[in-house]
Simulated scan of single mutants.
Amino acid sequence: MLGGGIQTMSITEVFGEFRTGKSQLSMTASVICQLPKDHGGAEGKVAYIDTEGTFRPERIKQISDRFGVDGEAACENIIYGRALNSEHQLELLNGLCQNFASGEFRLLVVDSIMACFRVDYCGRGELSERQQKLGQMLSKLSHMAEEFNVAVLMTNQVQSDPGASALFAGADGRKPVGGHVLAHASATRILLRKGRGEERVAKLQDSPDCPEREATYIITNGGISDPEGTK
């Protein structure tokens, strides 16, 4: 669906409701990133900023088993930071620049980008300040992606909006949180939604070089897989 994978030097946003596999996709990508290039990887380390406490080392080890990677080594190649609020989230991001200067990192995950902002800034009275701070963080992410040639994968929550346009909302009326500031920062946007039974559907809504299309997947012990469990 993505024409080969997550692009470096740009921001890819994945949004959807709960239990659609956003964190599972993030952890799967964290393992795939470490694979050799001839196996679809990037032969690099991963930086993981967790704002919701959903990261699990045991899941990394399970996913590693699927790809024939040593689980302990995979965990060691992931620098992990638990963001407690939006300011701490930006501090963690700034601290990564020194690590990225080594040239060993190929993926930066933020799961999720808006969780801390939604807690720290409540109501319309603080909306302007929230968007300003969010814009600063997204600008930092964009600059890091370009300067260090890394792929930025960020997950996002959704909110109900029955009057939303089809461009920004799915068929069920849900749209990603963050407004136009986030929409303009993301080069690639992917909507995750629940399908039939255990199936999930990813829809590519915005991309600089790929047409709109969908892909079906399931969540297994080995992370995100196609319905046959082969990819």
Rank of each mutant, 00 (worst) to 15 (best):
T51G: 01
S64E: 02
L35Y: 01
H88I: 12
C116R: 14
R82S: 08
G44A: 10
P162L: 01
F100Q: 05
S142F: 10
R66W: 03
R59N: 00
G40I: 12
F148V: 06
V109N: 09
S139Y: 15
A42H: 02
Q136W: 13
D65R: 11
Q159H: 10
T51M: 03
A166I: 10
V152H: 02
H88D: 13
A164H: 07
R118N: 02
I78Q: 00
G95C: 06
D111M: 09
G53T: 12
E76I: 00
D70V: 02
G44L: 11
A169H: 03
F100R: 05
N94E: 15
S102L: 07
S160T: 10
A73M: 13
L35M: 12
S160R: 15
L167I: 14
D70Y: 13
R82T: 01
G103S: 09
N85Q: 00
L107Q: 05
D161H: 11
L108W: 04
R106D: 05
D161I: 00
F117E: 04
R106C: 08
F55W: 06
F55L: 09
F148Y: 15
A47M: 05
I60T: 01
C97T: 14
Q62R: 11
H39E: 15
T54F: 06
K45H: 05
F55I: 02
G170K: 01
K61N: 04
R118T: 04
Y121R: 03
F105R: 02
G125E: 12
M114F: 08
G123N: 11
K140W: 00
R118I: 01
P36R: 11
Q159Y: 12
F67D: 08
L138S: 02
K37L: 09
G41S: 09
C97V: 14
Y80L: 05
A145V: 09
A145T: 09
E126K: 12
A166L: 13
N149P: 00
H143K: 15
A166T: 13
Q98I: 04
A151C: 08
A74I: 03
R66D: 09
V110R: 00
R124K: 09
Q136G: 12
S112I: 04
E58C: 08
K133V: 08
N156V: 10
D111F: 06
G81S: 15
E147T: 15
P162D: 07
Q157L: 03
R106P: 00
V158G: 02
R82K: 13
M114C: 05
A145M: 07
G68R: 00
V69A: 11
S142G: 10
Y80N: 05
N94R: 13
A101K: 15
N94G: 05
